[in-house]
Amino acid sequence: MDHLFEFLLRQGDNALVLGHRTSEWCGVAPALEEDIALANTALDLIGQTQLWLGYAAEVEGKGRSANDLAYLRDVYDFRNALMLEVPNNDFGRTLMRQFLFDAFQVPWLTALSASSDERVAGIAAKSLKEATYHLERSSETVIALGDGTDESNRRMQDALDYLWPYAGELFGQDATDQAMQDAGVAPVPASMRSVWDTQIEQTLSAACLSRPDTSFAHSGGCNGSRHTEHLGHMLAVMQTLQRSYPGAVW
């Protein structure tokens, strides 16, 4: 197994799957302004996907493109964290997930900006500006809704309770992670935990939300061993055009 290819798939698939989920709000968000903001976020993530998967395809060296990787792989080939593939549910859960992910991405992309691999460092530096804005927006929304009405507080706490067991998967430490650390490409994701914890603690306390009292963490997304039942449905929608009209272009 090529660890660099695997690592790049993880970065690209995280961005792709969350980007697609976020795009599902287009046209149906609770306010016009939020609708456009979510569409912008989705487009940022899809843009990052093109860079990560484009590089992954080069590293793989089998003549596949970023589009091939996005549209012609099946569930078991995806390497995204499970938290990013579960359905949006309501606006609250969508923003809570965005926040939990952004709070990881900012320190993570900061670390990757110093990667020994120039391409990784370049993609990370570009993505970091977007992630920094996403984090500002998602953390403020989590605080506004958590510290809002009784109903918005309840919904945000429900969202947090639901997502929490999925968040732990972001902090992996497997053979690929180790190989990337040894090569100076990236630190192991597990080393992001304390800075993530601090950010989470601050935001949740300002949002009047309580951190769930469990350290249980689902896994299986980042290594492709076991995705949730939701990813297949999502891919069916996302990939239908390329599957129905192979090779279709604009």
Binding site: E33, A37, E140
Partner: peptide, 11 residues
């Protein structure tokens, strides 16, 4: 105002 600033950026 803060929220308006972010929305203005996005819209």
């Amino acid at each position: 105002a803060e929220h308006a600033m972010k929305n203005a950026r996005d819209v």
